[in-house]
Write a protein that binds this DNA or RNA. Structure first.
Length: 533
RNA sequence: GCGGGUGUAGCUCAGUGGUAGAGCGCUACCUUGCCAAGGUAGAUGUCGAGGGUUCGAGUCCCUUCACCCGCUCCA
């Protein structure tokens, strides 16, 4: 029903993606592999255009040259960091702990819970050794993984945290030692169906991909494929500051592939296990951070609009206070209403105020100072210069998902117009369109093919770096227009009999089907203007 | 992980134990003077994979993989 009300069927979009070479199932001839998708020729070009636009508008000419809240032009530099980092990077970032959410299933009612989301269970489930000395206070049972010592530590930390938050009464997660769970499980009841003894032992979901560095592949060689590109930026922050003349406030951008072992890959490419991110970490003085947060939040929204997600299907959603990470003072998501999420929205990009959390974490774990000496702050000295101020910069993180972005572009572009002979049209923004233009001889004779070929060659020489220039002399003109509609080509230039005498061609607009006649030597300028080049 | 559904040509799908099909697309030729996706001809299949039952399996049974939907989850 939702699909019908949206007017867009995900099945139809997926069929078009396959048919026209946007997206293929990965390893399809072997039966596919869960959570992985490949891009075909047009999809590859579409995503490249999206990545290029991000690169241009975030790094090369940040925010289209506009000024930041400090009245200065926004400054950003790129890095390219590796998928595999030192394993301790992921300890510092919190991913080693945070990515391993133990899960518990109820065999009776098939419910699944995050173990740390379960309501507290009575004390008697703990071993006597553990309960000694804790009789006088309210004690809760936790789930936990690892050795008893590790679990004790984990629990102490958790209690301290919850006490600090004054939520101990309501939110304490239960803990049980894995090694003696079987003897204790009769004491536990399922929060959903109240059946006793039906909960499975907590099972660990490894959300990070594990691999081995080195040919011997022993347990000492374990490394992880990055779950986000951001950490590579934080780890190289000091090098960038030390080896360039860039000064806070500034951003460092990083684009690349990340991996997450999603529990349930679903919804076409939306939740893939291998995906590409475009992340910017913008470093600024703590006092200026809220201004920068608002600046990036608004710009990122504007940016997605500018590449074609212009309608009601795009929204900005500020996270509620209880949704925020403990270190964040503000986070919002740029969200798109996909056919499969409608009427709800799915995240395209998160813009997070991360405070000084990441640099502080890496400073502690690496024991390398990661603060910044700002020579433009501090009290004014007699000689006219400033005394300087040392601080750990705060960070605003706009982190975009390129595969989700490409999927949103596809869903937004997909249009069905039953009044047209070929109802399916991909209305890509010209800047995103994989095929920029097509050149057709109206009929394949009378000198028209030659003129068309010459124009094609010219357009390719000028626009080939931005996208495909198609040329097709075969079959009826209607068929050729229809094919271009389905591939999302915005402009078709047609050579007809008049071209040979007055040097004009027709331009057909994809979205309206309307035609106008322009001089053949104006085609290049016409296209350049409309592609925003 | 659980439940439901699907898997046959590039795409959409028909095929209820007995020779592998249609429409669209694709290719070639002809036509065509701006969208009636023209006409004619042609090519295209490990029937998702593996095993079993049977004289015989796309069809029945088992296993498995993938995708879709609903739960669950989404750091």
């Amino acid at each position: 029903m939702r699909r019908i009300s949206m007017g867009k069927s995900m099945d139809a979009i997926m069929a078009l993606c396959k048919r026209r070479g946007f997206v293929y199932q990965a390893s399809e001839i072997y039966g596919g592999i869960n959570g992985f998708w490949d891009y075909g020729p047009l999809g590859t070009l579409l995503k490249r255009n999206l990545r290029e636009a991000w690169w241009q508008d975030m790094i090369m000419n940040p925010c289209w040259g506009r000024q930041g809240p400090d009245g200065e032009p926004v400054r950003c530099v790129p890095v390219e960091t590796r998928i595999i980092q030192h394993p301790r990077v992921w300890e510092a970032s919190g991913h080693v702990g945070g990515f391993n959410d133990p899960m518990v299933d109820c065999k009776a009612c098939k419910s699944r819970f995050r173990a740390d989301h379960l309501i507290a269970l009575p004390l008697h489930a703990l071993t006597s050794v553990e309960t000694a000395g804790e009789q006088s206070r309210e004690v809760f049972v936790f789930y936990g993984l690892g050795t008893p010592a590790e679990v004790r530590q984990q629990r102490a930390k958790e209690i301290a945290r919850l006490e600090a938050q004054r939520t101990l009464q309501s939110l304490v997660p239960p803990l049980v030692y894995l090694h003696n769970y079987e003897t204790l499980k009769a004491d536990f009841e399922c929060p959903a169906c109240r059946q006793r003894g039906s909960l499975t032992a907590p099972r660990q979901f490894n959300l990070m991909f594990k691999t081995y560095v080195g040919a011997t592949a022993s347990e000492d060689d374990i490394a992880y494929l990055r779950p986000e590109t951001a950490q590579g930026i934080f780890v190289q922050f000091k090098n960038v500051v030390d080896t360039t003349r860039i000064k806070v406030p500034f951003g460092i951008g990083n684009v690349g592939t990340s991996f997450r072992n999603e529990v349930t890959p679903r919804n076409f490419t939306f939740r893939s296990r291998e995906f590409e991110q475009a992340e910017l970490e913008f470093f600024c003085h703590p006092d200026d951070s809220q201004g920068w947060y608002r600046f990036w939040r608004d710009f990122r929204m504007e940016w997605w609009r500018s590449i074609g997600l212009a309608g009601d299907n795009l929204q900005l959603r500020e996270h509620d206070q209880d949704e925020l990470s403990h270190y964040s003072t503000g986070t919002c998501d740029v969200e798109y209403r996909f056919p499969f999420t409608a009427p709800d929205f799915g995240e395209l990009e998160g813009v997070a105020h991360r405070g000084c959390f990441d640099l502080t974490q890496h400073q502690e774990h690496s024991r390398v100072k990661l603060d910044y000496f700002d020579q433009e702050r501090g009290e004014l000295l007699p000689n006219g210069s400033r005394k300087g101020e040392r601080y750990i910069p705060h960070v605003i993180e706009p982190a975009a998902g390129l595969d989700r972005g490409a999927l949103a572009l596809i869903c937004e572009a997909y249009t069905v117009d039953e009044s047209r002979p070929s109802p399916e049209i991909m209305k890509f923004h010209p800047r995103m369109a994989p095929i920029k233009a097509a050149v057709f001889p109206l009929v394949n004779k009378d000198g028209m093919p030659e003129v068309a070929q010459k124009l094609t060659d010219e357009l390719r020489a000028r626009f080939g770096r931005h996208g495909l220039i198609e040329s097709d002399p075969k079959q009826s003109i209607g068929k050729r227009y229809a094919r271009m509609d389905e591939a999302g080509c915005p402009y078709c230039f047609t050579i007809d009999g008049d071209t040979l005498t007055d040097q004009t061609v027709t331009v057909r607009d994809r979205d309206s089907g309307a035609q106008e006649r322009i001089a053949i030597d104006k085609v290049s300028g016409y296209l350049s203007e409309r592609l925003g080049l």
